[in-house]
C-alpha cells in the first residue's frame, strides 16, 4: 500500500531563488511526522506547495498514490489535506464560530455543526466564547482555534506550520498534547517546527531540513539522540 503522502525530489523556487531543493519524505497514515530545521530552511515553502498555494519547479507530490502537485488549492483541501498556516492566519474580526464555518467551507455535507461541537469539546475555551471575535483571544487560544478551523474540513492529513510560535512553554505543551490527542483520534499529522525538541519527542518520524534539502531522517526518538541534531538544533553547548 502506498503511503498517505509522498514527496519526491521536490524543488520550489521564488523567481530565481530556490527555496526548496530536492526534498523527499513520506508520511504514513496514522503517524505524526515532523520537519525540523532552522529559519529559511524551506519548511513553510514545502507545506505551502503541498497544499497547492505554490507550484513546484520540479518533483512530485503524491497523496494516496495520486499526484496532486498540479491540482488547485481547493481541490487538494477537498481530497483531505488541511493546512494551518504559519502565524495562524485567523480572521481576527470574525467570531470563533464564523472562523470554524470557513474552515468547513469546502464541505457540502450536513455534519458541520456536529464537528463544530467536537472542536468545542476539544477546546472548551472556544465553546464558551464562540461569539467573540477571534482577534481578542490570547496567542494560545488563537492557536487552538487555528487547529480547530483546520480540523473542520475533516482532513486525513493535517499540516501544522509552527503551532508553538510565540507561545509560552506551558501553552506549547498544551498544544502538543492536543496534537497527540488528534493523532489518537485518527488524524495523520505533518508538523513543521523550530521547537525541535518538543516536535521530535512527539513524532513517529522526523526529517531535518537544511538549506532546502533533507539532511537527516529517522524515528523521532533516535533523531533526538543523534549528536548532529543535538548540536545543530537543540542548542547544546559543549
Amino acid at each position: 500500500m502506498s503511503p498517505l503522502l509522498e514527496v519526491r525530489n521536490l524543488s520550489v523556487a521564488y523567481g530565481a531563488i530556490e527555496a526548496v531543493r530536492d526534498i523527499s519524505f513520506t508520511v504514513e497514515a496514522g503517524q505524526i511526522v515532523s520537519l525540523i530545521g532552522s529559519n529559511g530552511a524551506g519548511k513553510t515553502t514545502t507545506l505551502r506547495t503541498i497544499s497547492g498555494l505554490l507550484r513546484p519547479a520540479s518533483g512530485e507530490i503524491l497523496f494516496q498514490g495520486k499526484p496532486i502537485h498540479a491540482e488547485p488549492a481547493h481541490a487538494i483541501l477537498g481530497m483531505g489535506i488541511s493546512h494551518s498556516p504559519e502565524g495562524r492566519r485567523l480572521f481576527p474580526r470574525m467570531t470563533v464560530e464564523e472562523n470554524l464555518q470557513l474552515g468547513a467551507y469546502v464541505r457540502k455535507d450536513d455534519g458541520v455543526q456536529a464537528d463544530m461541537d467536537r472542536v468545542y469539546e476539544l477546546f472548551p475555551v472556544l465553546g464558551e466564547r464562540r461569539h467573540n471575535k477571534a482577534g481578542l483571544f490570547s496567542g494560545g487560544e488563537q492557536q487552538m482555534l487555528a487547529i480547530g478551523r483546520a480540523m473542520m474540513s475533516k482532513p486525513r492529513l493535517l499540516m501544522l506550520d509552527e503551532p508553538s510560535m510565540g507561545l509560552s512553554p506551558i501553552m506549547t505543551q498544551k498544544i502538543f498534547d492536543t496534537i497527540k490527542e488528534l493523532q489518537s483520534l485518527g488524524t495523520t499529522i505533518l508538523l513543521v517546527e523550530q521547537n525541535a525538541l518538543a516536535a521530535l519527542a512527539l513524532s513517529d518520524h522526523g526529517y531535518v531540513i537544511d538549506l532546502g534539502r533533507t539532511t537527516l531522517d529517522g524515528p523521532g526518538h533516535s533523531l533526538l539522540a543523534d549528536q548532529r541534531v543535538r548540536d545543530a538544533y537543540l542548542g547544546e553547548v559543549h
Binding site: S51, L53, A73, H74, L77, G78, H83, P85, R89, L90, F91, P92, R93, M94, L102, G103, Y105, V106, R149, S153
Partner: peptide, 14 residues
Amino acid sequence: AIREDEDAARAMGI
C-alpha cells in the same frame, strides 16, 4: 473572508 485575509481564504479552499 477574502476581504479579511485573501491568503487565509485560499487556505480555506475558497
